[in-house]
């Protein structure tokens, strides 16, 4: 129930841009997209290109799930950011091509923190 509620909040959020890519039951993880659409992302990894060798797949990565995002730092495929703030800012600029205020960032981070669930500990231990 909580999850559904969150999604609705997420959906009706004024920052609708996130949900376009991070959607579905896992809030992401069901789409590939270019890393750095409106801004060069300075990635050394060519992403999907390494497999498909298609030019259009350069810097294309899987859009990750936002589940437990607060607990899975560092962020991005190369772990370039240690904080969610940095990540949200980068996403806004590079992926959505829009400016974002620090308040908005905080809101989003707060929201993202609500996506935490219990970690499947046993798996981690192993």
């Amino acid at each position: 129930m909580l999850l559904e509620f969150q999604i609705i909040c997420w959906g009706s959020n004024k920052y609708k841009g996130c949900i376009i890519c991070h959607n579905g039951i896992n809030i992401g993880g069901n789409l590939y997209n270019k890393f750095g659409i409106y801004q060069d992302s300075n990635s050394t990894n060519l992403g999907r290109y390494n497999i498909t060798h298609r030019n259009e797949d350069k810097y294309v990565f899987k859009v990750p799930s936002l589940r437990n995002i607060s607990k899975t730092a560092p962020y991005m495929h190369d772990g370039r950011f240690q904080t969610l703030k940095e990540s949200v800012l980068f996403m806004s600029k590079a992926q959505l091509g829009r400016s974002i205020s620090s308040e908005e960032i905080d809101d989003i981070v707060e929201f993202l923190k609500t996506l935490d669930g219990e970690l499947p500990n046993d798996r981690w231990i192993k």
């Binding site: 004024k14 609708k16 841009g17 376009i20 890519c21 789409l31 590939y32 997209n33 270019k34 659409i37 259009e56 294309v60 992926q95 959505l96 091509g97 829009r98």
Partner: peptide, 20 residues
């Protein structure tokens, strides 16, 4: 897969443009 990527961008742009 390509379609999805581009679709996401297009939708994002449209949404953003609406705000803009």
């Amino acid at each position: 897969e390509d379609f999805k990527s581009i679709n996401a961008r297009l939708v994002n742009s449209l949404h953003y443009l609406f705000d803009l």
